[in-house]
Amino acid sequence: MSSRETILNSIKKNRPSSTIELPNTDISHVKYRDRDKKFATTLKSVGGDAVWLEDKSVDEFVAENYRDLDVIVSTYLEFNGSTKDANELETPHLLEDVDLAVIKGEFAVAENGAVWVKNPKNHHRALYFLATRLLIVVDKNSIVDSMHEAYKLIDFSRAGYGTFISGPSKTADIEQALVIGAHGAIEVCVLFV
């Protein structure tokens, strides 16, 4: 018998014959009167920043706020300040020197400061984790209250990769001292447009 069969048979033999119903996950939950504010304060509390872009382009914002950076890469099509095209690169390892990645976020979650990032057109997901700084551009009308709304917007009927990013990479593994910038981005800014 294969291990697969052995395991499945053992489960069938050992599990109870009856069970409870799968519960409804859509429970009544927190709603925020001001989702923008909640998102911004939550993101701040996990080390990130939220900015609402008014009468300015992303290009201008980057030019003003990220000076003197050598390597800027973008998966956000409306941005024109890239210094190289990530998708042209043969291997993701070549993204190691990226100072700033301007990427597209699908929507933001007020309760936890997270942004859903899933971009089938980006060939190297490593970009999200190799770049020293992340600027995630999100539509300002797409902030939801909680993960309950968030998962309604997510679809994985096709293969792919997606991640929630909530602030910069961090660790508290040395004496519980919070250090921003473990392996991933050291700075994360969510830019609402």
Partner: peptide, 24 residues
């Protein structure tokens, strides 16, 4: 939606882990 709300809050008091990655 339920587990991502519970996990990090229970673990460290964060509202969610920095990265919650879905590998498909």
């Amino acid at each position: 939606s339920v587990f991502t709300r519970l996990l990090a809050r229970s673990a460290t008091g964060q509202p969610i882990t920095t990265y919650t990655s879905h590998f498909h």
